[in-house]
Design a protein around this nucleic acid. Structure first.
Lengths: 190, 190, 190, 190
DNA sequence: GGCTAATCGAGACGGTACGTCTGGTCTTGCG
DNA sequence: CGCAAGACCAGACGTACCGTCTCGATTAGCC
C-alpha cells in the first residue's frame, strides 16, 4: 500500500550533486540548492540521506570515478602494465572533473572520517585487487621478489595520485615514469 | 599614527584556532566561536583575515606542525636516517592533534586551493630540503644512484603520510619499515 | 499546500512590540530583541514584515490607541460633548503608555513618511468622522455656523494633542477648557 | 597653554549635520559619516558632543529655522498680521529643508525628550513673544477680549504647523485662512 | 625659542544589531 | 504514504556603527 520510494527523485538528487560538485566544489554544495536544482523538496532529501556526505558517497559509488575503474588488461610486461595503469589513473585525476571528485572525496573524508574510510576502501578495493593480481603474476613469472607487499604498493600509488590531485598539481609524465621505474627496481627479484 | 595592531589579539585568535581545531575539527570552527573564545570582537578578525582558511594558514605557519620540523640528525647510515625521520613524521601525524592538523590542512586545500598550495609548499619545503641533502650525501658516499630524484622521494613520503592521516589509519611500524626498505632497494647504487 | 502562516507567531511578535514600546520606546526596539522576547526566529519576522515600522503599524492598527476610539456619546450640548471628548483624548495621551505610543507613531512617521501618513490617516479617520457628525448636528441645531470646516477642527485637536504628547507636557485641564471655549466662540452661529 | 578648541572643526561638524539632515534625514545620520564628511576625527566629535541629538541641537540653535525667526512687522490690522505670520511659517515648513528640519526636531524630541523640550522651548520662545505682544496690542486696541491666553494661541499654531510638516502635508492657503478667521472670531472682543 | 599640555587626525578595539543564508524539522494538501 | 511546498526555530555569516582607546603630529601660550 505505501507508495515506494521514487527512483526518479533519487537519481535526480545524485545527478544534481554531481553537477554541483563539478561546478562549485563540495563545500559550496547546499542541501537547499541541491533540492532546487533536483526539483525535489528538502524533506525528500532528508528522508533518505542523513547528510551531505552520504549523498556524495552514494553519488560516487554509483557514478564512475576516474582511475578507480581499472580497465587495464595485463600483458606479459610488468613495467608496461604498471606504467599504463598508473598513467591512466594520473590522467583521470588531472582532468578538472577528476580533481573536483578527488577533492570532494578528500573533503568528505576529512569531515566525516567514518564514511570517508568506507568510501576510500570501496574505491581502493578494485585497485588493490588489480595490483595484487598483477604482482602475484609477476612473482610467478620470476619478475618480483617473494616478500613484496602488494597492498603497500597499491596504497603508495593511491596516496600519490590523491595528494597530487588535492594540491592541484598533477603528476607529470616524467614523475610517473620515474616512480614506476624506481618501484620496479625496488621490487625486482634477484 | 593610529593605534597599532594588537599583537595580543592576533596571538589570541591563532591560539583559539589551534584549540578549536584540535577540539572539533576545521569544518566546525566558526568565526563567531573563534571571536568569543579568543575574547576578541568579530570585526577584529574580519579586519585582519579574509577567511577562516587564512587564519588557519597563519596558525599553521606560526605553530609547529608535526613532521614538518625535521629534527633528525644525519648519521652515516642512510637507511637508519630515513627510517628515523619517516617514523617520526608518521608518529607525529598519528597523534590526534596531528590528525586534526593534517585534516585541517587538507580541508583548507580543498576549499582554497591557492592558499592550500602555498601552505603545502611552505610546510613541505624543509622536508624536501632535508631529503635532498641526505640523498645528495648518499650519492657522495656511493650509497645512492646518480639519477635519483630527491624531490620525488620526499613527495612520495609526504603523500603517504598525509593520506594515512586523512583516512585515520596511521602507518604501522611494519609498513614504515617495508616502505623504507623497498625505497632503499629502489635507489641503491649499482 | 505548504504549512500556513502561524497566527500564534504573528500575535506573539505584535505583542512583543507593544511591550517593548511601552518599556523602552520605539528607537530602542530591535528586531533581534523582538524575536527573542516573542520566542520566534528572526527569519520569521523578516519573512512577514519589511521593517520595524511595519510591525509597529500592524501592532497599532490591531491594538487600541488611546483617543482614537471615540467612545463618547453625543448629547444635546455641543460644548459638553467636545469638552468630554477632547478631555478624554488628552488624558489618554497623557498616560505613559499613551505618550509612548504617540512618540512611536511620530518616530515612525519621521522615519517612514509614507507608512506614517497611512497610519495617521487610519487613526485620525474615526476622529474626523465623529467631529464631522457632531458638527453637522450642531449645524442642524443652529448652534454652529454653516461655513465651518469640520475636518479643520478635528485636525486642530489632533495636532494639539499629538504635539503635547511629543514634548511630554500634557494639556492641562485649563488649557483644554480654554481651547474648547475659544473654539466654540469661533464656530458659533449668529 | 593647551591648544584651544578648533572653531573650524566645530563649524565643519555643524555644517555636515545640516547637509546630512537635508540629504537623508536625521535617523540616517551617523557619527562616523559626519566625521568623514566634516573631515574631522570621530574622537573630536565625541570630545565635544555627548550625542547625535546634541549636535543637531547646536546646529539648529546656530542656524536659522524657518518660521522660528519671526520677521513680521506689526501693523494696525490684527488679522492681516496673524495671516502674514502664520502663512510665512507654514510656507517655511512646507519647503523640503523645512520639512527635514521639522522632522529632525521631532525625532530628536521623541528620542531624547529632555533635550527636545529645551529645543522646542528655545525655538518657540520668540514666537510666543511675538504673539503675546501682538495680542496684547490687540487688547489695547479693543480688538481682542481681555481673557484671551496668548500662549495658548501661539502653541496652537506651532502644533498645527509641526504636525502638518511631520505628516508631509503642508497647510493649504485655504486652511491657513480658515484657521486665522476662525481664531479671530474666537478671540474678538465684544 | 624652546617647553608643555591639550587638540587633532587616524584608526584599532570590544561590542551590538543588522539583514541574509542555510540547516534540519514540522505541517499542510495533493496524488 | 510519498512528495512538493514552504513555514518554522536556530544560529553563523559578513557589514555597519557605536563609543572608547591609543597613537604620533600639531599648535597654542608661558617661561
Amino acid at each position: 500500500m505505501p507508495r515506494p520510494r521514487s527512483e526518479k527523485a533519487r537519481q535526480s538528487v545524485l545527478e544534481a550533486m554531481r553537477r554541483a560538485l563539478a561546478a562549485d566544489g563540495y563545500e559550496a554544495v547546499t542541501i537547499e540548492g541541491l533540492a532546487e536544482s533536483a526539483e525535489v523538496s528538502k524533506q525528500t532529501i532528508y528522508r533518505w540521506w542523513p547528510s551531505k556526505a552520504a549523498i556524495l558517497g552514494e553519488a560516487l559509488l554509483e557514478g564512475s570515478v576516474p582511475g578507480a575503474d581499472v580497465a587495464v588488461p595485463m600483458t606479459a610486461d610488468l613495467g608496461a602494465d604498471l606504467r599504463a595503469w598508473f598513467s591512466a589513473m594520473s590522467d583521470g585525476l588531472a582532468r578538472p572533473e577528476g580533481v573536483a571528485l578527488a577533492r570532494a572525496l578528500i573533503e568528505v573524508t576529512a569531515a566525516d572520517p567514518e564514511l570517508g574510510l568506507v568510501l576510500n576502501e570501496r574505491l581502493a578495493a578494485p585497485i588493490r585487487e588489480w595490483v595484487a593480481e598483477r604482482v602475484s603474476r609477476g612473482r610467478a613469472d620470476g619478475d618480483v621478489r617473494a616478500d613484496v607487499d602488494a597492498a603497500a604498493i597499491a596504497d603508495q600509488f593511491i596516496a600519490m595520485a590523491s595528494y597530487s590531485a588535492l594540491i592541484g598539481q598533477p603528476l607529470s609524465a616524467e614523475r610517473v615514469e620515474e616512480t614506476v621505474v624506481r618501484l620496479l627496481r625496488g621490487i625486482a627479484a634477484g
